[in-house]
Nucleic acid binder design. Structure first.
Length: 257
DNA sequence: ATGGTTGTTGGACAA
């Protein structure tokens, strides 16, 4: 089973790119982030025509997550538990063929020193708590998405340029490690421990893409039962080079049946 | 130091 995650940076602006990629890559499941539209505006019919059923959790203008699947979507949970007042659409979780799968869009957190960074750390702490609860079932769990965290220096082309940024602060990286230390694997890095230039995001500005000035911030975190089934994890750079590209590119996880 | 880009939206804000 092929599961992909892609921050599409507006599903309506990106629909041609996403449909073309689905037709070519044929993932069983696509996790999307930053759909940037309300739930009702999600182009579900376009996905249905391509054979995918969808579940979207949208929000006007910002954020928003969705899941598309060739197989039936069950047991939907909208929103990250732990703060009833949080109205930002950043988490949707489903079960597909017995696998618990979540599409995650963690807060960016910039500028540091504002309530935005506090919200980011609080959100990641909530994710940790929920991720711990999910482990208790001892079933395959796949938490995929844009974590807005650069885990290690190997994951950034120009570390000095990111010093002090909300994506790379020691406290941010520690918040991701807190989740990994529960028993989750950052499966791309686990499979490719020394691979450099394995980026998933290149800024629109400053010629970041042609210079390969990227960062790895889109991750698949897997429970031990999911790790048992891993056949591979790759980054498909091609979509970032297309016309009207998202600033992120897909990460693909392959699980054995 | 500044401005460089894209999307949503119709002036900033977010990334």
């Amino acid at each position: 089973m092929k599961i992909a995650t892609w921050n599409v940076n507006s599903i309506r602006a990106r629909l041609p790119n996403v449909m073309a990629w689905l037709a070519e890559a044929k993932p069983d499941i696509l996790l999307m982030q930053e759909i940037k539209c309300e739930t009702d505006a999600f182009p579900a019919m376009d996905f249905k025509a391509a054979g995918y059923e969808t579940h979207a959790l949208g929000q006007k203008s910002y954020n928003g997550v969705a899941i598309a699947s060739l197989h039936p979507i069950e047991a939907v949970h909208e929103g990250l538990p732990g703060d009833a007042k949080d109205e930002q659409a950043r988490y949707v979780e489903v079960t597909i063929k017995g696998v618990r799968v979540a599409s995650i869009y963690a807060p960016n957190g910039n500028p540091v020193g504002t309530e935005k960074y506090d919200y980011k750390l609080a959100w990641l702490a909530r994710l940790k708590k929920h991720a711990a609860a999910l482990l208790r079932d001892e079933k395959p769990v796949v938490l995929g998405g844009d974590y807005n965290v650069i885990p290690e220096p190997i994951d950034v082309h120009d570390p000095a340029a990111w010093e002090g940024d909300a994506l790379y602060l020691p406290q941010t990286r520690a918040a991701l490690r807190d989740i990994l230390n529960l028993g989750y694997a950052d499966i791309f890095r686990a499979l490719h421990p020394h691979r450099k230039n394995a980026y998933t995001f290149w800024d629109y500005q400053g010629g970041a893409w042609p210079r390969d000035n990227g960062i790895r911030i889109d991750h698949f975190l897997l429970s031990p039962e999911a790790v048992d089934r891993v056949a591979g994890c790759t980054i498909d750079r091609a979509p970032r080079g297309e016309d009207k590209a998202s600033d992120h590119t897909p990460v693909i996880l392959e699980l054995r049946a």
